[in-house]
């Protein structure tokens, strides 16, 4: 036996074609209203706001170069990492450097002469001194900064709480003494960084 409403063909459960159309319209309206909201929610859920302020590393693993700021005379660095991200550049040495008070690492690659530069900024001169001593041993030579260990292929030096290590590419024959001007240029750029308060 059929229900009276069915027989009569009325009532909300058994809508006519016109009502069905209006229901589709309502659904479309709801979808149109919800779509931008859903997009916004997804964007926020995926860290949209966070990305605006804290850029993540690009796929290569190198950090996004930040403005060199006070490092006048040097190109933008290849990497500029805070203490928490030292692993991206030095991996296993990161924890050791943090223990010595390293709070920032910057890296450059020069083409003429081909050389790699790393600059480590410490909380104080003690940390920079300790890491230089570990890398270079006790012997010091004339060179840039307040103390240095210089050879034809490398220049390690400290200026205040900043420690720099500059390595010429050994696979490239470089003119004797061609690394020293680079070291001097780096030292000039680092003076302002060394004077910056932590």
């Amino acid at each position: 036996m059929l229900a009276p409403s069915m027989v009569a063909g009325k009532g909300p459960r058994f809508a006519s074609g016109k009502t069905r159309l209006s229901r589709v319209g309502v659904l479309l309206q709801a979808l149109l209203l919800a779509a931008p909201l859903a997009g916004l929610a997804a964007w926020i859920a995926r860290g949209g706001f966070a990305r605006t302020h804290t850029p993540g590393p690009p796929p290569s693993g190198e950090s996004v170069p930040s403005p060199a700021g006070p490092l006048t005379g040097l190109p933008p660095p290849l990497a500029d990492l805070p203490a928490a991200r030292l692993e991206e550049r030095v991996d296993g040495a990161a924890e050791y450097l943090r223990r010595e008070g390293c709070r920032r690492l910057l890296a450059w690659r020069f083409e003429d002469p081909p050389a790699d530069l790393e600059v480590l900024v410490f909380d104080g001169p003690e940390g920079a001194r300790a890491v230089l001593a570990r890398d270079a041993g006790p012997e010091r030579t004339a060179g840039p900064g307040e103390e240095a260990a210089v050879s034809e292929q490398s220049i390690l030096f400290r200026r205040g709480p900043v420690y720099a290590r500059l390595f010429a590419d050994p696979s490239t024959v470089i003119r004797s003494g061609s690394l020293e001007p680079v070291g001097e240029r780096v030292d000039r750029a680092l003076r302002s960084l060394a004077e910056t308060r932590p």
């Binding site: 991996d91 040495a93 790699d116 890398d135 041993g137 292929q153 490398s154 050994p170």
Partner: peptide, 12 residues
């Protein structure tokens, strides 16, 4: 023998 793991100096 020194400066690891990154190194860089031929003297090491």
């Amino acid at each position: 023998v020194r400066g690891g793991p990154t190194g860089g100096r031929l003297e090491d």
